[in-house]
């Protein structure tokens, strides 16, 4: 009996050890970024090309001090607040448009069987999965012609590629989660589709709508590719801004401002992490558009 108990205890310790190691694997790189943001040093101790930058940390001669200066710099010099505002404006307006279009579409996909349903579902899946390069050039040319380059409207529209499939398919799932008899009762009461959507479906799926909107917002916040090509000085977003602080410095042969990059990265991920944790129950539905259910 006691031997059995020991065995059980041992396996519990092993399990906790594994859990903690896994947590370490997740958190270590993040914590290094956060911590490096607080560091001012003469350069990386080790660079990618080997020991060319051997620091003097362990030789005890210093060269590193901890200070919030990089964070302050990121917030000031990198115009982080501006990036933040840009990201919020673009993401919020894009998500709102996606809700206006995706809510009725998601409702119809959840409620009805009709010809063309497979086509729409397939198109939304393709939209989510497509390589940006397959649409980038037309966007580039048309935006150039219409003057939408580096504008909020232009970016909000381009991010519908991310947000429309998310909102439509997630809402479809949330509507599907409601017992279908509730809708059938409403249909037989003589209610129109828009009445049912407004008075029955939406109130019941409101928490879901909030989750879908937050998930879409984070997706837009984190997006880098379209931002790299279609934003400029005016609408530069957080994820683009964090990076370009670095890459532009390479191009102009400045010294690598790695600590600044780390500070900026930390600031960029904080809202995304908090929001994602708030909707973590729906992450899988959001990423797979409900296909993995």
């Amino acid at each position: 009996m006691s031997e059995n108990k020991n065995k059980k205890n041992n396996s519990r310790y092993i399990r906790y050890l594994l859990l903690v190691s896994a947590a370490l694997w997740v958190l270590w790189p993040i914590s290094i970024m956060v911590e490096e943001g607080f560091r001012v040093d003469i350069g990386p101790l080790f660079s990618g090309r080997g020991a060319s930058f051997v620091g003097e940390f362990f030789q005890g001669q210093g060269g590193i001090k901890f200070s919030p200066i990089e964070y302050q710099k990121a917030l000031r010099i990198e115009a982080y607040p501006r990036l933040l505002v840009n990201s919020v404006i673009i993401a919020v307006s894009s998500v709102l448009v996606a809700i206006l279009a995706g809510l009725p579409a998601g409702f119809t996909l959840a409620m009805y069987k009709f010809r063309g349903k497979a086509f729409i579902t397939y198109a939304l899946l393709a939209m989510r999965t497509i390589s940006p390069f397959a649409v980038l050039l037309p966007f580039f040319l048309i935006y150039g012609r219409l003057g939408l380059f580096d504008t909020y409207q232009g970016m909000a529209f381009v991010y519908l590629i991310i947000n429309l499939p998310i909102i439509t398919m997630m809402m479809r799932g949330f509507f599907k989660d409601i017992p279908k008899e509730i809708f059938e009762a409403a249909f037989m009461s003589g209610a129109s589709d828009s009445y049912i959507l407004r008075k029955v479906a939406l109130p019941l799926a409101l928490p879901g709508l909030a989750a879908a909107a937050v998930f879409a917002f984070v997706g837009t916040w984190n997006e880098f590719f379209y931002a790299l090509f279609l934003t400029g000085a005016v609408t530069k977003t957080v994820s683009r801004g964090v990076w370009s602080g670095f890459s532009e410095s390479i191009e102009s042969f400045k010294i690598l401002e790695f600590d600044e990059l780390n500070a900026g990265g930390t600031l960029a991920i904080i809202p995304a992490v908090i929001l994602s944790l708030a909707v973590q129950r729906y992450l899988a539905r959001g990423i797979t558009l409900g296909a993995a259910e």
Partner: peptide, 30 residues
């Protein structure tokens, strides 16, 4: 599980920075 899902929330470009020679491996190598 809350800890484990954090990476999904992080912008992939930042992940590129996190796992760079100058961040994670600089630390690890030191």
């Amino acid at each position: 599980s809350s800890i484990f899902v954090i990476p999904i929330a992080i912008a992939p470009i930042v992940t590129g920075v996190l796992w760079s020679p100058n961040s994670f491996f600089d630390d690890l190598n030191t």
